[in-house]
Amino acid sequence: MQTSLTFADLLDDAALLSLEHQLHLEEVLGSHNWNVDLQQQRFEFTGARTITCTAFHLLGSAAPGPASWLWAWANPSGFPEPVVAASASLRDFGLQHGIAELASAEVPFSVLPGSPAEPARAAGLLTEVAKAVTGRWTSYSGEAGGGTRAAFLVEHPDFRLPPPEPARVMRVIQQALAGLPLTDHRRALHSYAVKRGLSADFGAQQAGLAGPGFEAVVEFDEHGRVAGIKATMTSPNAG
């Protein structure tokens, strides 16, 4: 039984489900603008139609000058408590589990995986971990002036994922394996399967995944990385 939890673990836990939510968000929003009023606690997307978030949570901001991330709970601007409550819960989680990146008010880019130089990349890493801890899976980040990037978790019924669909599930898995810097492929796949409500049977050298209309066998190499995936479409009424 694992006795410790790391920043890298949380990134893997979030990776695939976060990716699917962000792909869905792009489809829902299309071409759009965004506006936030922290004091009035209002976050809105405008475009083909207006979407006013039912809730939103400011996580923090990544600034190029100091090359660091500042958690919202530590921001001296003094935002309303409901806006920063999620970030405060992440601080408490970090203290409980000894994860300095969550517990510290300010986080230098240099201590993050890959030592990112760009604020958007640094904000993205911390947002991913925030998703794994809070269970809120849709995020948005935008320019806050002077190259600073502000990151939010946003909520609205339209942002919720539809039931898993074979082509989308396989796209998410393949895109994640090709483009995301996963540390533990097995952990990332297992986390996604469980959170997405898929059937998952993980063995030493392979894993079986199944959902409505598909089955997949994932082969792992000696390093635990995915070596191949064989997917089969099935009848929704099979079994």
Rank of each mutant, 00 (worst) to 15 (best):
A200F: 11
A120F: 01
G213I: 13
G47F: 10
A123K: 02
V194F: 02
V169F: 09
L177Q: 02
S77N: 00
Q2R: 15
P64I: 12
E27R: 14
P163H: 06
A123F: 04
S115Y: 00
R160A: 15
A122W: 00
E20G: 10
P119M: 05
R187S: 11
E215I: 13
P76G: 04
A200Q: 08
Q206V: 05
T127P: 00
M170D: 08
A176Y: 00
A100I: 04
R168Q: 13
Q175M: 10
L70C: 08
D37G: 07
G147C: 12
H97T: 11
F109W: 00
E222Q: 10
E106K: 03
E118G: 01
G211C: 06
D9F: 02
G78E: 09
G213Q: 09
E222P: 00
L153N: 05
G114A: 04
Q174F: 03
H97R: 12
R196V: 11
P181K: 01
L180T: 00
P212E: 07
A210G: 15
S141C: 00
A88G: 13
H57A: 12
T138M: 11
R42K: 15
G30V: 14
S18L: 01
A204H: 08
H32I: 05
F214G: 09
G239N: 10
A67N: 04
V169E: 14
L38D: 15
F152K: 06
V172C: 01
H21D: 05
K195N: 13
V36M: 09
L5T: 15
A100H: 06
H24L: 08
P80R: 13
G211E: 03
G203K: 13
L161D: 06
P162H: 06
I51H: 11
L125E: 09
E27G: 12
H190W: 08
D221V: 00
G30E: 07
V36C: 10
A72N: 08
R186A: 15
F45T: 14
G142F: 08
G197A: 08
A122F: 00
L177T: 04
E101A: 15
C53P: 09
